[in-house]
């Protein structure tokens, strides 16, 4: 069930271009699926009229905590990323459809680019809890983009690329040597659209089921305004409601 909840920011770690926010809810949290997202209110500015859609990065039901990795893209996300500890945030969650969680025969690779690594944390955590052993392939422009890398590494074998070569293999995630060394049975991808399109093409070539998480511009987050549509084999579908996670076979890419 979707809820409107008040949270208190109980932890903030600033990584320069992004920050990691931990929020504690006043009430118990609803069930959340990896890949779902939240709509966060950024108050007191006419420039941030609408809520900001943010991926659910991690959940601790017992502590009633949700966390987000917020990249400072514009005014709203910058203000959000700089929210001081102790401040209240109003959040609507969980929204949309997440990644498939059914066990699969063979290796599962979670591919993240830039801030797109955010939802893969909860995904890897839940997959492990379900007895799966996901591998991760994370890419950034530079080493500092790979926020919480050690925590990701604790969740599964993790491969890294950076565009400047400061960490892992130099280049894009799609150029990593792991693609030549291993076979995969499923890909779960989140990152910039051009990167996801290349991974989707790779998946199609190798005939691997592939899910991608989209981030089209949206207003409501509930499937009402019909602004965030993506062109699919079933027509224009709302990323907020039918997605944000789509099997690439449904997309007209």
């Amino acid at each position: 069930m979707k809820r409107i909840l008040d949270f208190t920011v109980v932890g903030k770690e600033d990584f320069g271009r992004a920050s990691w926010l931990r929020l504690k809810a006043d009430e118990p949290l609803p069930d959340m699926v990896p890949g779902q997202f939240a709509q966060v209110m950024v108050e007191d500015s006419p420039k941030t009229y609408l809520r900001r859609p943010i991926s659910i990065h991690d959940v601790d039901e017992t502590a009633r905590e949700v966390s987000f990795l917020v990249q400072k893209v514009g005014e709203g996300t910058r203000r959000l990323a700089e929210t001081p500890e102790g401040q209240r945030l109003n959040v609507v969650l969980p929204l949309g459809h997440g990644f498939s969680m059914e066990p699969v025969q063979g290796n599962v690779l979670l591919v993240g680019g830039g801030i797109g690594i955010a939802p893969l944390f909860l995904l890897a955590k839940r997959m492990r809890a379900n007895g799966m052993s996901p591998q991760l392939l994370l890419g950034g422009k530079t080493a500092s983009d790979l926020i919480r890398l050690k925590d990701y590494q604790a969740l599964g074998e993790t491969f890294v690329t950076t565009e400047d070569g400061s960490l892992g293999e130099k280049g894009f995630v799609t150029q990593h040597s792991v693609w030549k060394q291993q076979q995969f049975a499923r890909l779960c991808v989140c990152g910039p659209k051009p990167m996801m399109k290349v991974v989707a093409a790779l998946a199609q070539e190798k005939d691997i089921p592939c899910e991608v998480s989209l981030e089209n511009l949206m207003a409501c987050g509930l499937g009402a305004c019909l602004c965030c549509v993506e062109d699919t084999v079933d027509g224009h579908l709302c990323v907020c409601k039918e997605g944000p996670v789509f099997n690439t076979r449904r997309l007209k890419w």
Partner: peptide, 14 residues
């Protein structure tokens, strides 16, 4: 309907 993008945020509106 029209192609994406279909919305733009504006001061206190959209």
């Amino acid at each position: 309907g029209n192609p994406y993008p279909r919305m733009a945020e504006t001061p206190s509106g959209m």
